[in-house]
Amino acid sequence: MTESEKLSQIWRVMAKSIPPLKSLQAFEAAARLSSFLEAAHELSVTPGAISRHIKILEQYLGAILFKRHSNGVKLTSSGASYARKVVTIFEDLDSATKAIKYSAPRNNLTVSSLPVFAERWLSERLTSFQMAFPNTDLQIDTHVDAELFSRPKVDAWIPFSDGDHPGFEVHHLFDEFLVPVCSPSFRKTFPDSPSVDEIVNSTLLHDVNWGNDWSHWAQAVGTEGQRRDAGLKFSLYSGVIQAALDDLGVAIGHVSMIQKELAIGQLVEFSEYRIKSPKAFYLAIPRPKTAMKKSRSLVAWFERECKR
Rank of each mutant, 00 (worst) to 15 (best):
S44P: 00
V45Q: 11
T46I: 03
P47D: 09
I50F: 01
R52N: 13
I56S: 13
I56H: 12
L57R: 02
Q59T: 14
Y60H: 13
L61T: 08
G62I: 13
L65R: 04
K67R: 11
K67Q: 09
N71Q: 14
N71G: 10
L75D: 12
T76K: 09
T76L: 07
T76Y: 07
S77F: 08
S77N: 10
G79Y: 09
A83R: 00
T88G: 05
T88A: 15
I89F: 15
D92L: 09
L93N: 06
A96I: 09
A96R: 06
K98N: 14
A99S: 13
K101E: 15
A104D: 00
P105A: 05
V111E: 03
S113Y: 01
L114C: 04
V116R: 06
L122T: 05
S123Y: 02
L126I: 15
N135A: 04
N135H: 10
L138H: 07
H143N: 07
V144I: 13
L148H: 04
S150G: 02
V154T: 12
V154H: 06
A156I: 07
W157D: 06
F160G: 01
G163N: 06
H165W: 05
P166Y: 05
G167H: 11
F168Y: 15
F168K: 10
V170T: 08
V170S: 02
